[in-house]
């Protein structure tokens, strides 16, 4: 890859290998995330999407390969280097991961209090701006336990964008949200990219959301990248697994597999 193209990538992954014990989860994954674009990582349940995300944000070390974030290999970074880098990164976890002992407002304000020299008055205004963006205006004094699952998810989103990160990672941001709120988050992702020039990586299996927000799609299947390209190419891709995904067709077991299952079941009885 030439230097000019490299400069445009916020993230580059080369030959990433991840295993849990003897189980290989990701095999030789190669992918790039371009600056200022929204990249959607698609794939069925258990295909390795969230595992890939956890490795990109440095929560786990891979068994092989390199992960460059802003041209720096995070697989060799120590904790301090990683912590500095993560200040430019926001993450919306699938589980929300709010601090239950803090109010929603304090959860959102926490990164600003920890990592900037902004006055408290500025932080308070920023917190209200971010809560308003996710439709939680007026909820700053609520505790996480007082919110519904969907509201917690939105509060977690507000916290992830509190520092206006250069790169935002979202793990299933709209899972469990009603269609209207989910559409609102899609819209917000689009606006964040446009106004703040954010680079955004979204892990999802929701096709409707993908078509709305993605500049580029990466699809994983059984730990490998089987498609990488723009959504319009994804829609017409001939790969059987992609077609199955696009057409929302269920897996069907072959006769051999059914025979094996039936034999195993009856031999135990």
């Amino acid at each position: 890859m030439d230097a000019a193209a490299k400069k445009e990538n916020a993230i580059e992954i080369h030959n990433l290998v991840v295993s849990f014990g003897s189980h290989r989860v990701l095999t030789d994954v190669d992918m790039q995330v371009r600056c200022g674009e929204t990249t959607v990582i698609l794939g069925g349940s258990g295909c390795g999407k969230s595992t890939l995300l956890r490795h990109i944000i440095g929560l786990r070390k891979p068994q092989g390969g390199r992960i460059l974030v802003k041209n720096r290999d995070i697989t060799t970074m120590d904790e301090d280097q990683m912590s500095t880098l993560l200040r430019k990164v926001g993450v919306v976890f699938q589980s929300s991961a709010l601090f239950n002992s803090l109010t929603i407002g304090d959860n959102v304000a926490l990164p600003l209090r920890e990592h900037t020299r902004l006055e408290e008055s500025t932080i308070q205004i920023m917190t209200r701006i971010k809560l308003d963006m996710v439709g939680l205006s007026g909820f700053e004094h609520y505790m996480p336990s007082e919110l519904s699952g969907g509201m917690k998810k939105r509060a977690a989103f507000a916290r992830a964008i509190s520092m206006d990160p250069e790169i935002l990672f979202c793990d299933e941001p709209s899972a469990g949200l009603d269609p209207i709120v989910a559409a609102g988050l899609d819209e917000l992702i689009f606006k964040l990219k446009k106004a703040l020039k954010m680079t955004i990586v979204v892990v999802t299996h929701e096709m409707e959301s993908m078509y709305k927000i993605a500049d580029r799609v990466v699809m994983l299947h059984e730990g490998k990248v089987i498609f990488s390209g723009p959504p319009e190419e994804f829609r017409v891709c001939e790969h059987p697994r992609v077609r199955q995904f696009v057409e929302r067709r269920a897996d069907h077991y072959g006769e051999d597999e059914i025979g094996r299952y039936a034999r195993a079941l009856t031999s135990e009885s």
Binding site: I125, K130, L196
Partner: peptide, 13 residues
């Protein structure tokens, strides 16, 4: 050329 939400918050102040 670029202003983030801390800039907007500062102007609100």
């Amino acid at each position: 050329d670029y202003m983030d939400s801390s800039g907007v918050a500062t102007l609100v102040e």
